[in-house]
Structure formats: C-alpha cells, structure tokens
Design a protein around this nucleic acid. Structure first.
Length: 494
RNA sequence: GUCCCCUUCGUCUAGUGGCCCAGGACACUGGGUUUUCAUCCCAGCAACAGGGGUUCGACUCCCCUAGGGGACGCCA
C-alpha cells in the first residue's frame, strides 16, 4: 500500500509556523516513500473559518515550497478536500455510528452541562459528560426529535479499562477510558466536529501515516474508538513535539512570532526556515546542520524524531539564514533582495504616502527605513508620554494588538476606524492613544502616517514591534494579563 | 485538580551498556586575519534533574521523587 500523509490546517487565522513544521515532515516522508502528501482544509468551525485565511495558508505553504499532491485548489481522486464540502459524508457516518450504538443523541441543555461542569470542577474531577441521555429510550428520542428539539450526537465511551495505542516515537501509551469525555461529534447546528471529520476523512482518504502535533495524544482514544466502531484499520501514529517559547511553553503568538509571514517579511529565505524547522526534534545522522530539503527527504527517519519539545531559537535561525544568504551568488542575492523589497503591492502602498512628502529622491530611503528595515532600538524614555502612565502605555499597546488581531480587513482606513474606536471606549484621546503606537512601530517620533504604516507592515510585524515595546517596558505579568483580558472582554462586549 | 507526555551544556542536538572524566552547532568570552564592520580561522566557557535498583560496568535498562509541558469545549 502506498504511503499517504496529510496536513490539515484549520483556516481560522494567519498561517502558523506549526503548520509548516508538521507539513514539512509529512511531505518529506511521503516523498521519500514514493507516496502522496495531501492538504485538507479543516473548516468545520464555520463561524471562525474564513476564505481569506485559507488562501493565506495555502500561499504561505507555497512560499515555503511545501506543495501538495492533492488539495482543495488542485483536486485529486479523494476529494473534496474541504470539510465544508463533505458534510453529507459525515452525516452518513454519524448515522451509522448511532445505528451501531457507537454514538447517541443528547438533548441536554447548555445550562445543565454548565452546572455539571461546575459541580465536577468543585469536586476536582475531570469535567466530562455524565451519560445522562444514554438512558433515553428509542421512543423518547423519536418523540423529542419529532418535536424538533435541538440535540447533539455524542461518542459512546467505555466506562472502565484503558485505551492502549502505539505512538511510533514514544512507544505504547495507555489512557484510562474514565478520562475520556463523550465527545460531541455532531453539533446542534448539524455540523460535525473535528474528531468525526478527521477520523472519517483520514480513513476515506487512505491516509496511512499520521504525523501531527503532540497536543493530540490525549484525544487519541476518541479516534481509536471511532476506528474500532467502524472496524477500520488505524494509521501509524507519530506525534511530533510541540515547538516551544523560550520559557518552554507551547509556542504562542503572545511570546514569539508564530506567523509564517513574519519570517517572509523580515527576509528569511524559505529554504533556510525549512532547514531550521527540520532541525527541531530531528537531526541529520552525520549531525550536519545546514542541509537542503532534498537531503532532508533522503535522510529522514521518523524513528529518530525526539519526543522532547524544542525551543524555537531565533538567534540560531538567524545564523542559518545568514549561511544561506552568503551561499547565494551575487546575481541570486540581487534578485532575491529586489523581489523581497520590491514586492509590488507593498511598494504601491508606500509610494502613495511618500510622494507628497518628498522633495528629493535622497529623502526617500530615510523615510521608509522602518518600513523596509528593522525598527531602530528604543528604550523606556522613548515610550514615555506626558499624559500617560506606564500602565496606560502598556494597556494601549496590548489593546491595540488585540484590535488589530480581530480586524476583518487589513486596510489603513479600517485599521484607523478600529483603533480610534478602541481609544474611545478605553477613554483615551486618539492623539494620546496613537503616540506610543507610533514609537513602538517606527522607533521614531516623526514618521509616515500610522495606520498606513501598519497596513504596510502587516499584522505579524506590527504585533512583533508592539510586543517588543511591551517587553521594553518590563512586560505584562500573568496577573496583569488576566486583568487586561477581563477589561477587554467587558469593553468589547458593550 | 485528573490523566498523558517529556527531562544531556543557556538553546538545538549526538549518544540505543564499555569507543563518553560525554561529541558537534548556536549564543557568549578571548585571540588571529581584515583600513572599519561582517565573514573566516583558532581557543575557551558550559550539561547526563535527584535518589534507589539491575549489571563486572549505566547518559544509555527498571522504579520512585522532583521539575517542565500538553490535554481535559457544541475550537481545531
């Protein structure tokens, strides 16, 4: 049987490094084995998924040269490759599970579930469904369905014993069934959840090896169970370690640039980034650290993946990227710098605000220095403001980041509207509110218009600069963060 | 809190019972080359989490403890 692997990102945000990391290993392994690598879009959460995000993710993977043999854009013989286009398949499978007793309908109200959860937490138990609707008779279920009562479909989970499965990297893993919740497989709106989609699709798409993030280990029993109920052959499992922040926690955008586009926009070479990702949890047999994708594919041995979560070290990535850049011929270097800097979309945006501020061409570069180059170093004093306390400045930087993260369209006018609104609801004058943002973004007191600059720099770079400014002010403690979370929720709800 | 996973220099890692008083790389420090800087070269710093076993012998196998991480959603 030919090897088939997949990566299944959910289009709910900007392209993530973790997706690239997982995609890299999946693709390389499939290629090495003469198999196929599949891209599937996991858009089962209709509310959070967006077409834009999907496009961005596909583009980012293409930038890294992580192309796929089958996917939503190019099709393939196991399609469609978007969850949202396969709803009938899941419906049929959910019904089959209900028939066979592997799943059941649950009519419990949100209130009952909330109460249950609270009670279980109070008793320090793992919160999970108590099986209330398991006791419903067939006629009762039929009556409530006929009455149009809203309900979900849940997975039936054994009450005793352990679920044992093998992770090829870690060995045998046993998890007590007691720990496993009776997972919702079909939501009350009729949409399937991840667990149903992923298992059904992996089987139907003939996936033979699953390489995914370690965070999925604890939901393996659910998947094992679904496969058992259907009588399907389970795939070989490989759980790759989670990329970590410097403090060892799971890599997150709050502490690290996690967006693929951040690395693209700062001028990392895709082959260098890929090479670096390949050294996370894995090493060449001869310990060579600089190697091409082809060499990686040739030497990859999944068993040699280390289960230990590696810290993503930007300093080492910088070194490696430097190696790649110096290896370029002069011609290649020129071509690549120009295509990076001269990204026509970006240049167009810059030109419009630059021209009216220019008397001689030698004034052009100094003005755009912070847009094309790194921001100048700043310190606490630069961020200080006469009518704002340090606390205010921190809050402004944090709330501005949140505002931008929830922006639906990335255009300067809309960014402006959104930021002004945030300033207003927080009770700041717009002029005061934008002052720290100006410094954080440009490293200067005088710069090109703020909202346009933000548009040009993009979310990833902007966020990184705001975050760095926050760090310069001493950072935001967990306690403070919780307070800000709360305040933000209150402010944005009203 | 419960369950699961993990544990070699600050960081990425080599190491599958003797080749290891632990090797490489990044970072850092010192020196050399260079009109400066960078590159490059050389040198240095620095780790087997702790405690018990098993064994002639343990970084490697087993157990316990500690620490770190993850999961516990009608998110994925």
């Amino acid at each position: 049987m030919s090897v088939r692997t997949r990566v299944a990102p959910s289009p709910t945000g900007t392209p993530h490094l973790g997706t690239a990391y997982i995609a890299l290993f999946n693709k390389a392994y499939a290629e090495q084995q003469g198999g196929d690598f599949i891209l599937r879009i996991e858009d089962s959460d209709a509310a959070r998924s967006s077409k834009q995000s999907e496009t961005d993710i596909l583009d980012a993977l293409k930038w890294l040269d992580l192309s796929w043999d089958e996917g939503p854009d190019i099709g393939g013989s196991y399609g469609p490759y978007r969850i949202s286009e396969r709803l009938r398949i899941y419906e049929a499978h959910a019904n089959e599970l209900i028939q066979s007793g592997g799943a059941f309908r649950c009519f419990c109200s949100q209130e009952r579930l909330d109460d249950l959860r609270r009670e279980q937490q109070r008793r320090s138990e793992t919160p999970k469904y108590d099986g209330h609707c398991l006791a419903l008779s067939a006629s009762e279920i039929q009556r409530r369905m006929d009455a149009g009562e809203s309900h979900v479909v849940r997975l039936r989970v054994p009450e005793t014993g352990d679920c044992t499965f093998t992770d090829q990297i870690r060995g045998e893993i046993s998890i007590p069934w007691q720990q496993i919740d009776m997972q919702v497989l079909v939501k009350s709106d009729g949409f399937p959840t991840y667990h149903l989609c992923a298992t059904v699709d992996d089987h139907l798409m003939g996936i033979t090896h699953i390489l995914r993030g370690e965070e999925w280990i604890s939901s393996c029993p659910k998947h094992v169970l679904i496969y058992d109920y259907f009588g399907w052959q389970f795939q070989e499992l490989f759980h790759l370690p989670l990329l970590r922040n410097t403090d060892q926690s799971k890599m997150s955008k709050r502490k690290n640039p996690t967006g693929i586009n951040y690395y693209r926009d700062r001028g990392y070479l895709p082959e260098a980034l890929l090479n670096y990702l390949a050294t996370m949890g894995w090493s060449m047999p001869d310990e060579r650290e600089q190697f091409s994708y082809a060499q990686f594919t040739e030497n990859l041995d999944l068993i040699r993946i280390s289960p230990r979560g590696p810290v993503f070290d930007i300093e080492k990535l910088d070194w490696l990227n430097g190696c790649y850049i110096r290896d370029l011929s002069n011609d290649e270097f020129q071509t690549r710098v120009v295509s990076w800097a001269g990204n026509s979309e970006r240049v167009e945006k810059i030109v419009s605000m630059l021209q009216e501020r220019t008397e001689r061409f030698d004034q052009v570069l100094p003005q755009v220095e912070y847009l094309l180059g790194d921001r100048k170093p700043i310190d606490k004093e630069d961020l200080a403001h006469t009518s704002l306390s340090e606390e205010d400045v921190l809050k402004i930087l944090d709330f501005a980041t949140r505002t931008l993260e929830s922006a639906s369209t990335w255009r300067s006018d809309e960014i402006g509207v959104a930021l002004r609104q945030t300033a207003e609801i927080c009770g700041y004058k717009v002029r005061d509110f934008v002052a720290p943002l100006f410094v954080a973004l440009s490293g200067r007191k005088v710069a090109l218009p703020l909202f346009d600059s933000i548009e040009v720099l993009g979310l990833e770079l902007t966020r990184a600069r705001f975050r760095s400014a926050i760090e310069i002010l001493g950072g935001i403690s967990n306690k403070k963060l919780k307070k800000l979370d709360k305040e933000w929720t209150t402010l944005t709800q009203t």
